[in-house]
């Protein structure tokens, strides 16, 4: 009787240990084919704060994660990375933070609010978005500086605007936008509504917009690659679930969904 109980405890401990090992080192080992396979040990609710550009992919990933781990629920909150960091620093109940740039993740790390070192899980580059039919006849980056082109970009204060500034400097082109928006979705909106002739957005935005816009890639985009880091937030009530979700996103399942949406490998 006592022997049986002891061995049961031993088995349970071993399973738990393996689960920990699997989930703990998933980013380094693609061999973690079932990073969340030890479903029985995971229970709890987490809230994931993710950059607006991750809306489609993270909604998808959260559903898969919940299906793999029936004891868990993943609530998602999408907004600009900067706004999300501000909210977390002011005490918002986030368990995981996925940023669209390293700058904002550093703000969170500097506030000692990340649990462990953030892991880069995706990259994104700028592309030119034009309305279907390309009314202004844009073919390359230099065309954006044309006098009759109504160009919309992000303001230099936000990540996509910083990237646009870097790319323009690399290309040696002076851009004269008619509007500098606060978010990449606003830029895309001005292009899909045909108010603007061209906009600088991320490759993934064009992929997600479907037929509403056409994307024109340009070589200079390589000069401003945005890196997306993810990390659990300290003080989570379900720290194990948060860690498992981070491992899931940085693992092979996450990579597959992200690559399909147009994100690059970190």
């Amino acid at each position: 009787m006592t022997v049986t109980r002891a061995s049961r405890v031993l088995v349970a401990a071993t399973v738990f240990g393996i689960a920990l090992a699997l989930t703990g080192c998933a980013p380094a080992t693609p061999a973690a084919t079932a990073p969340t396979g030890s479903a029985a040990t995971l229970e709890g609710d987490i809230t994931v704060y993710a950059a607006a550009s991750l809306q489609a992919t993270f909604t998808d990933l959260a559903e898969t994660f919940e299906a793999d781990n029936p004891g868990t629920t993943v609530a998602l909150n999408f907004a600009g990375s900067s706004a999300l960091v501000t909210q977390i620093i002011e005490g918002a109940p986030a368990d995981v933070f996925a940023s669209a740039d390293t700058t904002n993740m550093t703000r969170l790390t500097d506030a000692a609010l990340t649990d462990g070192t953030p892991v880069d899980f995706a990259t994104n580059v700028l592309t030119i978005a034009v309305p279907p039919g390309n009314p202004a006849g844009i073919t390359d980056f230099a065309d954006l500086a044309g006098p009759d082109v109504r160009l919309v970009v992000c303001a230099p204060e936000v990540p996509c605007g910083r990237a646009a500034k870097t790319v323009a400097a690399t290309a040696g082109v002076t851009l004269t936008p008619v509007s500098e928006e606060s978010s990449v979705t606003d830029v895309l909106g001005k292009v899909t509504s045909r108010e603007a002739d061209a906009g600088l957005v991320y490759v993934t935005d064009v992929a997600a917009a479907g037929d509403a816009v056409e994307g024109i890639e340009f070589t200079e985009s390589a000069s401003a690659v945005n890196t997306y880091p993810i990390a659990p937030v300290t003080g989570s009530a379900s720290a194990d679930v948060a860690r498992a979700f981070v491992d899931f996103v940085t693992g092979s399942d996450g990579a597959a969904v992200l690559r399909a949406a147009g994100f690059g490998a970190p």
């Binding site: 919309v152 936008p177 008619v178 509007s179 500098e180 928006e181 606060s182 606003d186 909106g189 001005k190």
Partner: peptide, 13 residues
């Protein structure tokens, strides 16, 4: 304003 006019220093911001 944000939705309709855009945002450019001195013009619409």
């Amino acid at each position: 304003t944000l939705t309709f006019a855009g945002s450019l220093q001195g013009t619409t911001r």
